[in-house]
Each structure stands twice: as C-alpha cells, then as structure tokens.
Design a protein around this nucleic acid. Sequence first.
DNA 1: ATTATTACTGAACGACCGTTCAGTTGTCAA
DNA 2: TTGACAACTGAACGGTCGTTCAGTAATAAT
Lengths: 192, 192
Amino acid sequence: MGRKTIDLKDAAEVFRDFYRAEGRMPSFTEIAEAFGYKSKNAAFELVEKLVDEGLLTKDARGRLRLASVGVRVLGTIQAGLPTTAEQDQMESVSLDSYLVEKPEETFLVKVQGDSMIDAGIHEGDMVLVERGRTAREGDIVVARVDGDWTLKTFERRAGQAVLVAANKRYPIIKPLNELTFGGVVIGVVRKY
Amino acid sequence: MGRKTIDLKDAAEVFRDFYRAEGRMPSFTEIAEAFGYKSKNAAFELVEKLVDEGLLTKDARGRLRLASVGVRVLGTIQAGLPTTAEQDQMESVSLDSYLVEKPEETFLVKVQGDSMIDAGIHEGDMVLVERGRTAREGDIVVARVDGDWTLKTFERRAGQAVLVAANKRYPIIKPLNELTFGGVVIGVVRKY
DNA sequence: ATTATTACTGAACGACCGTTCAGTTGTCAA
DNA sequence: TTGACAACTGAACGGTCGTTCAGTAATAAT
C-alpha cells in the first residue's frame, strides 16, 4: 500500500480547527501544508475520501464546506444518546444563529450575585443581552436604576414600572428618579 | 454624486446572512449579484468602505472575513451596555467554540421535567451533552438506570455510584442492575 | 452652466484555485 | 519474488479569484 494511513475522523478535526481559526475552509494548497504533503493532489484525494465518508461537502464550484457546523440536536433524553450510525441524519444547529438574531446588538454578560437564582440564572452564568429591544412585562432586563446597573425582571405594579428579583431575599425595586433599559435578556449560557 | 447610497450597516448584514447560509464569505462576483451591480469593481469599492468602517476584514490573500463572528463579551454588568464607539475594541466569541470542544461527540438535548431545577436547569432548557467523557463525582450526567434515561448529578454514597436529583422532591436513585453513562453535561443553553 | 465628486460599467491582469493525469514509491498478499 | 494496490509527487489545464485602470453616468456644489 501507500505510506501512512490517517484516521479520517482526525483529519476532519484538522479541517474544523482551521475553520474555527480562519473563519473559512482551507484551500488544497493549505491542506497539503497542514498534512505535510508536497503535492496538492494528495490533499485532493484525502478530501475525496472525507466527502465519501460524509464528513465534508463540496458546493457547485468545488469549494469545501463542513458537513456539520455547530451541534446536533437530539429530540428528547428518553431515547438515550445516538450511535455513530444514527447521528448522520440528525439536524445540526449553530448555537450562534440559534441564540443570536442581531449579533451587532447582542452582548454576553457575566452574571454576578444570586438575585435571579429562581429564574435559573446563577452566579457565573453568561446572559445574552440584546440592546435596543423594547422590554415587555415579564422580560428579564439589564436596567439602570438611580445610577446602578442591575439584572432583574421587568414588571408593573399599580401602573408603575418596577424591577423584581427572582429571589425572595431581594426587595422589589421601585425607581425613584431614573429607569434606563440597557437591553433585554434573550438567552442564558452556562459552561461547566 | 453617484446613483444610490446604501447604509453600510445594512450592507454588512447582507454579508452576515450569506456567511450563515453558505458557511463562507461571498466572492466579489457574488457580492455584485447580491447588490445588483453589473461590475465587480462596484462590489470591490463597497467592500473597501466596509473594511474602512471596520465591519469587514481582509486576510493576506485578500479573502474576506467577518469582523465579528459570534457575540461580543462584556466584562460585568456594572458598566452598563457599551455604545457603538466602545464596542469596536471588544473581544468577540463564537458560542459554538466557547461551549463545544468536540462537535462530533456533543449533542443538544431538550430538558423535560424539573428534577434538576436547583442546579438552574429548567424544563425547556437545552443541555449540551458530550458523549464518551468519563463522569466525575458532582458532574451532571445523562445516564441509563435500569432501562430509563435520566438527567441527574453523579455522586457516590458509601462507595456506591448513585444519581441525585437537584430537587428535594426526588429521591436518590441507586441503580439496581444497570448504570450506563450516555454522556456528561458540559453546558446549558436557554432561549427566551 | 460648469465643475467636482461619487457611483458605477467594462475590460484586463497575474495569481491562485480546484481538478486531472502520468508517473513514482512504498506496503501488503499471494 | 512478484504483482496489485494505495499513497503519494510533480506538472499541467482552464477557471475564477482579487485587483487595477480607464471611462461613463448621475448627483451636488459653485
């Protein structure tokens, strides 16, 4: 046979790393460099195998594309986790596009304190805040009350806009002078 | 002056949409098509403006790159949300690469029930499960106990492996015959 | 009305792209 | 030992790429 045999899964990993670092797929010249080939054709044939395996895709003009960007979605937990054979047919979703609609207006903010713990937002969690969206009752908002920025639920009590913590140990905040909305929390992200 | 003047922010949105749909940035021919230009040069000059505005970047070989993939990270909530002027210098992070290390082994599972509510995992949340990772004490795991798949904290009581719910109303599960680990929960994602 | 400036068109350039092909080198099975 | 086969090398091809340049059309200021 030939010289070395590489695991195709490992090869696909190299492509994914390149895509993450560069934001695009490598050219055949770059693939050859990455794998230590001296010929583009060696890279070409490697890509053909990966396409056959379904790990890569090509578009009409031959440009490469990752078969699975993001994470695959499994319906419910009841079925257990899928095997390698089953997972090919599963839909794959990018967490960025799943959670964020307006990247230009969205920010990731680290949560301090436990004032929203009953809403499942713990200290150290990251909340996705969209700036400029109008807050509706019940929305969790980033707001500036009398000089301080806080993370609270926006509600109305007797016609007045108030900020309510999701923790019984915190009082309801009734803005005296100032109430500015920084943004609305559109999502929560936690990493263990 | 020339014929029409387009808002550069809107133009950048077109590029982002293309990148989301195709997984890569458009060529100048494709840009011309998307904006209704009959000449590649019109697209070229539009891109130059976007680069000047910092909305796009070019690499060494002239290929385009989105200036902000993913979401910008804001340190703490104390400072409030940044203005347009400040946000340019902020680091931008892809949620995919922030949360997921091994895309091939990671799955997104929708949570049913309230057994993990004290750990801040509510019904309807999505948990990121990495298959194959060895579970350590205190890890939240997807496990199969005596035939049923559940989401619980993995612990040891008197030398025996047990599954503990983060909810006082649920009992500790001591596996009778079978205990199979499907994967370890490496993150939580919630969308409002 | 004239001029300057901007928004384009259209053609051309070398460079690199994906692809193909002929040949070489190493490895395994018979 | 031999032959088949797979893993490569190296050169070549047309095509598309990013880029440049000369010119035209439309707006705005003078």
